[in-house]
Amino acid sequence: MSEANDPAGGVVAGEPGGPTDGPTDGPTDGAARGGPEAAPPGDRPGDRPGVGRRRAAKGREGLRPPLRHRIITASLLTVAALYFLTPVYWLVVSSTKSSSDLFGTFGFWFHDPHPLDYLHRVLTYDDGIYVRWFANSLMYAGVGALAATLLSAAAGYALAKYRFPGREGIFNVILAGVLIPGTALALPLYLLFSEVGLANTYWAVLIPSVVSPFGVYLCRIYAAAAVPDSLLEAARIDGAGEARIFSTLGLRLMTPALVTVFLFQFVHIWNNFFLPLVMLSDSDLYPIQLGLTSWQGYADRQPELYQYTVGGAFLSVLPLMVLMGVLQRYWRTGLTEGSVKA
């Protein structure tokens, strides 16, 4: 049973301000989460402190579930994994096929694969517009998420660590912002931006992307728990300015929450389709999603674009999937921080 591994680790992982919280997680925490580097199947959690008692309890009660249960569990998990991975597998196979093979051959198996050749054509088609889209996506998501994280950190810190009139009111308005559908905002925002000549520029996508009410919410919850008032007071007595206290103490103590906000916003911006679709008409400014749909739209007239769409989709998914695989552990902290506390 993985859940029997380490209750203490689990609690620490969920608690802001825990010493091994977030991205700095050491191996102990990884094991507690039953990650790949966990101790061998559930039996010997190793000699981390605090597990001795549990191990004794386990021995006494024989908590390991019967074989039948484990087989059922494993088969259910396998079926689910097949469901989630099959489309990805199809994408990998299909990215090695020509347009005519896409239609003519069985989709779940390779046929005359030329992966490098086709991917090269994706990258060079139309003067390498694909590379440009990719760079645009990286820029929107990277710069946008970084700015969003800093803005959220400052706002969340202010809401958690200072008392001033209207604080709760401001916070509630920001919270309500979480519940407003982004797409309902995009249309009027486009109309506004076209009035001031911002539509169809990089700014049109970047500016709305740096505002993350959810990030402020997370940062406030986190700062309230992880940044002790006494520390701030001590720094003030030492004569440090508020800005300096925030940038040296606040940001450092909030790091786990900041990583979560950054990743969240990065994926959010990367995946956002409606906003760039509404804002941009110049294909040089397109992020990758928009570019690929435009290829897909032309594929009826230009059949090789089918192959480019599939190959381009494969290439675009690759970095983010790797990121998902590596980063899913960081994701856990903070996500439900608020609800855990509530």
């Binding site: 049973m1 993985s2 859940e3 591994n5 039953g34 990650g35 790949p36 580097e37 966990a38 101790a39 061998p40 199947p41 559930g42 579930p65 484990r70 569990t73 494993a74 259910l76 998990l77 689910a80 994994a81 989630f84 991975l85 489309p87 990805v88 994926v267 990367w270 995946n271 389709f273 999603q289 928009l290 690929l292 749909t293 989709a313 675009s316 998914v317 983010l320 999937m321 990121l323 998902m324 695989g325 899913q328």
Partner: peptide, 27 residues
């Protein structure tokens, strides 16, 4: 299920289930 499964494959399954989140809606 993952919470109750034995530890060996949990990491693999969790990653497999989470992967599609990295695929944008359009893709």
């Amino acid at each position: 299920l993952l919470d109750a499964a034995s530890a060996r494959w949990v990491g693999f399954f969790r990653t497999a289930f989470f992967l599609p989140y990295g695929v944008p809606g359009v893709i």
